[in-house]
């Protein structure tokens, strides 16, 4: 046993250097070459950081595209889903409330046209994206709030839509933060 223990101690020390020191240091050096220098990619407007490209933000004003509901209120100091089970009655009441709120802010929209993603919380609480349908259902409200034509905003959504990977794999999506930054730039 003693023989094994001595070997174990030495081996652990060597592997710590290899795996916990050299490996991450090498990767942080590689990270300097990536966008955002390995610190995470940020989005700047007029030289000011308005957010991280991959981290969703809370939007509640009528003139912006809203993000999905979040269990952590879009504070990326943490991250979590609601962990509500599909048949939980309290949860279903909360979803009903979100539907009602959405209908109040979006007059003229029919309930059966609301995509479920707009009334359900994401897994991370930081989902940066919407599906194209989730964005387009909000166009009418934003057009009214900004006095811009719906066509113009619809075109913007189309421009900002990211197609599935190689056009073949996965869903299409729109980054809400980038969309709202572009929205502010429309005159």
């Amino acid at each position: 046993m003693k023989k094994y223990l001595l070997t174990s101690i030495k081996l652990t020390a060597v592997l710590l250097v290899l795996l916990a020191v050299l490996y991450p240091l090498f990767l942080s050096a590689v990270g300097k070459l990536a966008r955002g220098n390995g610190n995470g990619e940020t989005i700047n407007v007029n030289g000011k950081i308005v957010g991280y490209a991959n981290i969703g933000q809370k939007f509640t004003q009528d003139k912006y595209f809203w993000s999905r509901p979040s269990a952590v209120d879009y504070n990326a100091a943490g991250s979590a889903g609601s962990n509500k089970g599909p048949t939980n009655p309290d949860y279903l009441r909360a979803v009903q409330d979100r539907i009602d709120t959405f209908l109040v802010h979006n007059p003229g929209i029919k309930k059966e046209d609301i995509p479920a993603e707009l009334v359900t919380a994401s897994g991370s609480g930081l989902d940066p994206d919407l599906s194209p349908a989730g964005a387009k259902i909000q166009v009418k409200r934003i057009a009214a709030a900004r006095h811009i034509s719906e066509d113009k905003i619809n075109t913007l959504v189309d421009e900002q839509t990211v197609r599935p990977l190689l056009g073949m794999f996965g869903p299409a999506k729109v980054n809400v933060l980038k969309l709202n930054v572009a929205l502010d730039e429309i005159k």
Binding site: R68, P86, P115, E117, T120, S122, D127, P128, A133
Partner: peptide
Amino acid sequence: QPTGAMEGKEVR
């Protein structure tokens, strides 16, 4: 539910 059950899921 055009994109299925979305509670706890990410759009991407």
